[in-house]
Design a protein around this nucleic acid. Sequence first.
RNA 1: GGAGAGGUGGCAGAGUGGUCGAAUGCGCCUGACUCGAAAUCAGGUGUGCCGCAAGGUACCGGGGGUUCGAAUCCCUCCCUCUCCGCCA
Length: 423
Amino acid sequence: MLDPKLIREAPDLVRAAIARKHLKVDLDAALGADAAWRALLQEAEHLRSVQKSANAAMATLPKGSPEFLAKLSEMKAVSAQIKERDGALKAAEERCREAMLTLPNLPHESVPEGRTPEENVVFSTHGDVAGAGPFAVAHWDIPGFSRLFDFERGAKVTGAGFPFFIGDGARLVRALINFFLEEDVKSGYAEVSPPIFVNAASATATGQLPDKEGQMYETTPDRLYAVPTAEVPLTNFFRDEILDEASLPVMRCAYTPCFRREAGSYGKDVRGLNRLHQFDKVELLKWVHPSASYGELDRLRNDVEGLLRKLEIPYRVLLMCGGDLGFAQSKKYDLEVWAAGQKRWLEVSSCSNFEAFQARRAQIRFRPRESGKAELVHTLNGSGLAVPRVLAAILENNLEADGRVRIPAALVAHFGKSHLSFS
RNA sequence: GGAGAGGUGGCAGAGUGGUCGAAUGCGCCUGACUCGAAAUCAGGUGUGCCGCAAGGUACCGGGGGUUCGAAUCCCUCCCUCUCCGCCA
């Protein structure tokens, strides 16, 4: 959510910024709803103040006295009026809130102009893309693949997109999770193991609700949502709280399975490990002082890049253009690994600065020593990292002539041996 | 899942229909005393929203209701604690 004051005071600035995201947004509707709400609010508050002073007077009058009875009948009318006004006020407030929630976050000035994913800027490229995976094939075509990654039985037991990971496949998943968590902790993120179901209030605060409920798995009869990312429980940890300024930046990491219904996805994107309904991911979260958030974004991206460098996977960093920025982000980098068999880039992390957009919705603040007046923090997050696609890149890039997969040196200690075998 | 108790300001804890945004204590801030500190004394000390301002208004777990008027009465939901049951 944007700052309503900013929208009122500088609508043109907001309009121009939103235009850079190439979204169709009815700012005038929001402005109108806001003005209508404020007008009603003033009327309603005036009526209340009349009522309050009358009530104070009545409190001092003898109960059955003529003056008391006169006031009483007079106030009955006012009370009825207030009830009616309050109804209108509530409706106006709801309309206003809904209109405000349709407004996207403003892109940062450093975000490049652009409408489509093709206009994202390649910020940097690392590693030897051309020379990667001399024996590469798409991972699902590796002989024996289905012995370690059993999609058919997963489909039987649960559904498409819920594979079993078996033997060395399972072992590699576990090794990656461990590697990510331990590296992230070394970078200063405190490890958290959060709930993987959240309630509606949490899903609303991070923006999954009300619009994207079709993308989450929902439980019956408790109406809990399986987390699409650890970002949801992690961000909500401090919902409606005021943090100690000295504790900023707060940095945390969490491993969770992630659940995404991905309704409407199809085609080559979903083959093999590229896109699953359930996958493992380690997420990084930062709650920071507003003045520090862009420096923290660079550091976050660097921390994630460090993981890919240690795994010796060629990757590139994209700086998302306005049109490909998410609804809630001010600035976002996507990290993509090179999958030599598919000859395509796979997104394994996006590192975003939400500025105060999420914090306003979730009411996460800090109290500056100077003013003593609570202010919204800035929130950032990034994957560090998503397991299956990293795994896919390792399978493809590190496939050797004998059909085994070489485990990156940094991972050997976690995996326990130097090669993964499909037989 | 069953039975009971309870949710009030940073914390503890009063308050069962009217002048209660709310006693009191602790904590915190300011001042006095002091070379300084402690102790003591005096004063102050919640948050949000609307408003150019003066000011107004809302908030006693959430929502709804009764009433001229609700922290206080009624309904409902949530949460916490104690005991019992079940259980990794």
